[in-house]
Structure formats: structure tokens, C-alpha cells
Design a protein around this nucleic acid. Structure first.
Length: 439
RNA sequence: GUGCCCGUAGCUUAAUGGUAAAGCUCCGCUCUGUGGCAGCGGCAACGUGGGUUCGAUUCCCAUCGGGCACCCCA
């Protein structure tokens, strides 16, 4: 009885059989303008600052990430492995930097003018628990500067590019958080010092911190447990432990930021998820409430990543902007600013002859570079005008039996309702003229 | 991966142990050559599976999906 009912229901209704995979979503037509805007702006900024576009495959050898991200959650827990015929271990790329370094080395990009500034944009994949602003497939736009002997001026340029991109997208109240995590040597010395300090306070910190103390002491600086806060506040900070060269490097980075009049917060607790970073690390936040504590962009220097891929040491610095988060922030404000009318025409027909003629008029408009939309499937003038209104077209071109016969067309301004009749031969000319008038 | 909360038309939200109501959207009509307004009508939902029950959208379990916190991070 029960099953019969269920079966009926199922066959009667238009039931959905599938949904998008967890943490992956559709970007619908209505949101595309926001994504286009972000992409366009990223391309523009990249062009202005001299970054060259590079696209790398979405799949890479697992090895690349396993070597460069050893010990991090991103590669140890969150990679999507792909079954291919040989069962080689390919993965969906979880981040963009290592593949770019791979491409740089593989294609001998060190043989063209250095340093090389590269720009990329595309999806990344991480198998983690989704949350607002955190997806399993997410999009990054990134900038990298490779091959410049670690000059700190490039750290500043990288931060500049990411910041300007966010600014150009009108994201308010941007804050740069910056820190230096030193080089292998001073970081190690600092870690020891930190471990020593925490050991003396072991009974006052949370369980997680006690467990992390040995394997990843820098993580303790990230801890959000209230219990740890007072201990954390008095913990030694890495800036005091930097070696002479790292200190100088960081000082220079800050001086360059000052020169650019970029304000920043020194955040001694800032550490990064990927272990290939050294010296400068930074994150950019907006104080907009949607994603408190989620960075819109982040990056840093990675002078030793190349050694994990080849034998060469190549200095580099880079950053990535989280496009999904930016899109989310933009969405509410952008929608308000949508224009009431767009620069396009709506083609309206009355009767079969006009409908037929409309098809070629549409072509004529397209060839002339006039954006045209239509609703050929509707027949009544009324419903077509209604559709024109909804499409937010600025002009409607009305073609009836009479007009076809007389070889003219009615051009209607959808805002004022004013109409004029123009010879078909002059249609494009007239339309262009009317579009030029201020809205 | 762990814990907590949530899942009703395309969207936002109601009600109910006896299969569901409304607003917006969409489609149509009023209005067969003139849109935006109004009136009328229509399409359309209990995430999925199982259990308890005469009967489950409602209670229970599982699962999938979403949100939050942790973890981690763009």
C-alpha cells in the first residue's frame, strides 16, 4: 500500500535524481555578471602590472603536491585522487602555486626575461567540510613573481596586485595582515623557543595545543581556545627571533609598502597552511561581516618550493585571491546597481511575415554590432512588449504586416514610450543614433 | 574528520498524525497593433530511504544536502 503510493508520487512528480556534489555549486546565469566582473578585473590588473597569463592543467601528478605540501592537511587529507587507466596517481589540483612552479621549470621559463610575472585564474579542489565561503571546488585568481633573487620589492608588488584587485572591485575596509616566518634557520630556532615556552605552561593550554606542540608548533599561534589566549599573548614572537638577513628582508618589505602608502597590521600570529613558505606571509581581509575571519586573498614568499620539484633553487613570491568569497561580497551590492535599461534592442513581430523577416533583421543587427534579443515564440504584441520590458531592453523594434509591406519599422524607446518609424534600410543607423543618447 | 542546528513550490515563509496555505517569480487571460499597473486563472513542494502507525510532511532512525563551531583554509 505504502509503496504503491510512493511509487505513484514518484512517477507523477518531476523528481530530481541528482544534485551537485557536496561543496560544489552551479554558477547560474543570473550570477554570471558578477563572476565576469571579477575575471575581467583580474585580467585587467594583471595586464596593468605586467603579469602574463598562464593556464596549467586541472590535473597534476599527486607527487607535486605531496612533496611541496608534506605534512599539511591540504595534501594529506584533502586531495581528490583521479583513477586513470594506468592508475597513476593524478589529483585535482588543490592549489595553484606548485603547478605554476612545475610549469616554469618544465618549460624553461627561466630563459626569458626575469623575474617572470605570471597570472592564473581557475578552479581548485579540496575535499573538506563545506561552509559559507568554503567550497570543495573554488576559484582562485593568482599572481606569482618567479626568479628574482628574493628581492623584497617583489613581495610588496605581489601584495599590491592582490590588494588593488580587491579595491577595484569596490570591496571596502581592506586590511593587510603581514608577518615574516623567517628562513629555515631562524624559524627552527624560533620553534624551539616557542616549544620551550609552551612546555613551561603545558597545564594551562588546551588539549589540541598540547598535541600540536611537537609536530607543528607554529599552529599554536592560530589557536582560538580562550584558555590559550593569555599564554599565546605572552608567547615569544618570531619577529624577535629573525636572523639578520630575514629581519632586513622583512624591514624592506614594510618600507616598500610604506612607499606605496599601503597600511598593514603586523600580525605575529599569522602562519600559513602550506609549508613551502618562508619569510613574508600575508593575508587580506575585509571587515564586512559575511565571512568574519576568512581571508579574501593570501600568499607569501616561497624560495624553496622549486627545490622540492627540481634541483634548482628559484626565489618566488605569490598570492591568490578567493573569487568565491569576493563574489559573495559583491553580490548584494552589485545587484543594487544594475542598470534599469541595457543597451540592447528587442525585436517584436506581428504576424507570420514579420516573424520570418525578423529572423534576418536579427542577423542584420548582430552583424552591425547591436545587441538584440527576441521572443519569436510569442505572438501577441502585448506579451512581446511585456517580454521586452522584462529583458530591460532600451529599444523595441516593432515589425507588423503593414511595416513589412511598407519596408519600415517602428522604433520604440522603452523608457519614454516615444516611437518613430524608420525605413528598414536605415534601421541600424537609427538604432545606433538612439542608443547614443544619454539614458 | 568531529560536534550542534536545519531541509515544505524556482525564491521567501505558513499550517497539520488524516497528503498542504500564501506572497514573490514564471505562464496565460481580461487587452485579436502597444509593456511597466490592476483583476482573474494556471504550473509548481513536504530532500531521499526505512521504521512506528489503520494512516507520517509531522514522531524515530539512517542517508544526502545546507548552515555554524572545531579542524583547516581562498
Amino acid at each position: 500500500m505504502k509503496t504503491t503510493k510512493r511509487q505513484n508520487k514518484k512517477s507523477a512528480g518531476r523528481k530530481i535524481f541528482f544534485q551537485s556534489p557536496k561543496g560544489m555549486r552551479d554558477i547560474l546565469p543570473e550570477d554570471q555578471f558578477i563572476w565576469e566582473k571579477i575575471r575581467d578585473e583580474a585580467v585587467k590588473i594583471a595586464g596593468e602590472y605586467g603579469y602574463l597569463r598562464i593556464d596549467t592543467p586541472i590535473l597534476e601528478s599527486a607527487d607535486i603536491f605531496e612533496r611541496t605540501g608534506e605534512g599539511t592537511d591540504i595534501v594529506e587529507k584533502q586531495m581528490y585522487f583521479i583513477k586513470d587507466k594506468k592508475d597513476g596517481s593524478l589529483v585535482l589540483r588543490p592549489e595553484g602555486t606548485a603547478p605554476i612552479m612545475r610549469a616554469y621549470i618544465q618549460n624553461g621559463l627561466n630563459k626569458i626575461a626575469q623575474p617572470l610575472k605570471l597570472f592564473y585564474i581557475g578552479p581548485m579542489f579540496r575535499h573538506e567540510s563545506p561552509q559559507a565561503g568554503r567550497y570543495r571546488q573554488f576559484y582562485q585568481a593568482g599572481f606569482e613573481i618567479i626568479g628574482a633573487d628574493g628581492d623584497p620589492i617583489y613581495d610588496a608588488q605581489i601584495i599590491l596586485a592582490s590588494l588593488r584587485l580587491l579595491e577595484e572591485l569596490k570591496i571596502k575596509n581592506l586590511v593587510i595582515q603581514i608577518n615574516s616566518i623567517g628562513c629555515k634557520h631562524c624559524r627552527l630556532a624560533y620553534q624551539r623557543k616557542l616549544q620551550q615556552y609552551y612546555k613551561n605552561h603545558q597545564n594551562k593550554i588546551c588539549k589540541d595545543c598540547r598535541e600540536r606542540l611537537q609536530p607543528r608548533p607554529l599552529r599554536l599561534l592560530d589557536c582560538k581556545d580562550e584558555k590559550c589566549a593569555p599564554i599565546k599573548a605572552k608567547a615569544p614572537i618570531i619577529l624577535d627571533q629573525l636572523c639578520g638577513q630575514c629581519k632586513k628582508h622583512f624591514k624592506n618589505v614594510l618600507e616598500y609598502l610604506d612607499e606605496l602608502s599601503l597600511s598593514y597590521n603586523l600580525n605575529p600570529h599569522l602562519v600559513r597552511g602550506l609549508d613551502y613558505y618562508n619569510r613574508t606571509v600575508f593575508e587580506i581581509f575585509s571587515d564586512m561581516p559575511q565571512f568574519s575571519g576568512l581571508a579574501l586573498a593570501s600568499g607569501g614568499r616561497y624560495d624553496h618550493l622549486s627545490e622540492m620539484i627540481s634541483h634548482k633553487q628559484i626565489c618566488a613570491v605569490g598570492s591568490a585571491v578567493g573569487m568565491d568569497r569576493v563574489a559573495e561580497l559583491l553580490k548584494s551590492s552589485e545587484i543594487k546597481h544594475l542598470p534599469l535599461k541595457e543597451q540592447k534592442v528587442f525585436l517584436i513581430h506581428i504576424g507570420d511575415e514579420a516573424k520570418k523577416k525578423g529572423l534576418s533583421l536579427f542577423e542584420e543587427l548582430r552583424k552591425a554590432g547591436v545587441k538584440a534579443v527576441e521572443s519569436f515564440g510569442r505572438e501577441s504584441l502585448k506579451s512581446q512588449l511585456k517580454a521586452a520590458d522584462k529583458s530591460r531592453a532600451r529599444l523595441s523594434l516593432i515589425l507588423g504586416q503593414k511595416e513589412v509591406f511598407e519596408e519600415v519599422i517602428i522604433i520604440r524607446d522603452m523608457k519614454s514610450g516615444a516611437q518613430e518609424t524608420a525605413p528598414l534600410k536605415k534601421m541600424v543607423e537609427e538604432v545606433k543614433k538612439m542608443m547614443k543618447a544619454p539614458l
